[in-house]
Design a protein around this nucleic acid. Structure first.
Length: 278
DNA sequence: ATTCTCACCTGTTAGC
DNA sequence: TGCTAACAGGTGAGAA
């Protein structure tokens, strides 16, 4: 679930609660994380200078000059909890601080999440990220769309084209701009591109304001759920009626993903806006 | 080259 | 009720 708005929320929480703090000890690093980056243990003694976001990645800047990359993938969570609380089975990284009575936990049920130092030899995915979805413009989007005939949803989910959108916000953005997820990229009309640009920005901005969407496991660093779930128009709304046209929202499988849409107002073919007169 | 499919891992839920 | 299969928000390796 963590897409751009959720990751942004976590980064803000990290800046509020861990910026300037020095790691004292690391009581636990799970095997799969330790194997991926054997230097994780050297975080002890280092200080968090700042936290940043790029796409769905969290970047922790350290006083040593190093950058720690964190990706939550499907089920990752960053949590600050009381020092005395017992470690749970899916807590894969735990660190204490030289100040305060809390500890930082990386909890991740499905173990897809990543935590490792940025090096020149790793994280190709990070270095190949496309433009931030929050910074999209009609011109940039038009350029991305013009060079491909794959379904538009595939492009929206492609992090090397547009960084930050995931399944939820891709579906929501397409719904708002009335475009069918399977529409070939190069068949999206100019007016629709302008619409889609605005929809993407609007959906992401509102979701950030609501601290993200909690569908299943996502929460902020204090365990608080995201409030945007209440504002979803199509995602997870199959069976409900469309608030625009009243048709029943459906769920299909598109580009390998569960995909939600309104068959009444999301057009597979471009809509002819004006009839040509003679 | 681009695009698609599957695997990664665990928990939950739909279906029998 | 109990078991099994399918599915879940993301990505990357390898196949097509």
């Amino acid at each position: 679930m963590p897409e751009l708005p959720e990751v942004e929320t976590v980064v803000r929480g990290l800046n509020a609660q861990a910026k300037g703090r020095t790691i004292k000890t690391i009581p636990h690093i799970a095997e799969h994380l330790r194997k991926r980056d054997t230097e994780l243990r050297t975080l002890a003694g280092d200080t968090f200078v700042n936290f940043d976001r790029r796409g769905k990645y969290i970047i922790a800047e350290l006083a040593s000059g190093r950058q720690l990359l964190i990706h939550l993938r499907m089920s990752g969570q960053i949590l600050f909890i009381d020092n005395r609380e017992r470690r749970q089975s899916h807590d894969h990284f735990v660190s204490t601080f030289t100040t305060g009575s809390d500890k930082l936990i990386f909890r991740d049920t499905r173990k897809f999440g990543i935590m490792e130092f940025l090096r020149e030899t790793n994280n190709e995915g990070f270095r190949k990220l496309g433009i931030e979805a929050t910074a999209i413009t009609p011109t940039i989007l038009a350029n991305l769309l013009s060079v491909s005939s794959r379904p538009i949803k595939a492009l929206l989910l492609d992090q090397s084209a547009l960084a930050g959108l995931g399944n939820i916000y891709a579906d929501e953005s397409l719904y708002l701009s009335r475009i069918h997820p399977l529409r070939p990229c190069n068949q999206v009309q100019k007016t629709e591109i302008v619409e889609l640009t605005a929809s993407i920005r609007k959906v992401l901005d509102s979701a950030i304001k609501k601290m993200g969407t909690t569908f299943d496991s996502y929460s902020g660093v204090n365990g608080n759920p995201g409030e945007y779930s209440r504002y979803l128009r199509v995602y997870n709304q199959e069976g409900n009626s469309c608030s625009r046209c009243g048709e029943t929202i459906i769920k299909i499988r598109a580009v390998g993903r569960g995909t939600h849409l309104c068959p009444g107002c999301q057009q597979l073919k471009p809509v002819r806006r004006r009839k040509r007169v003679r």
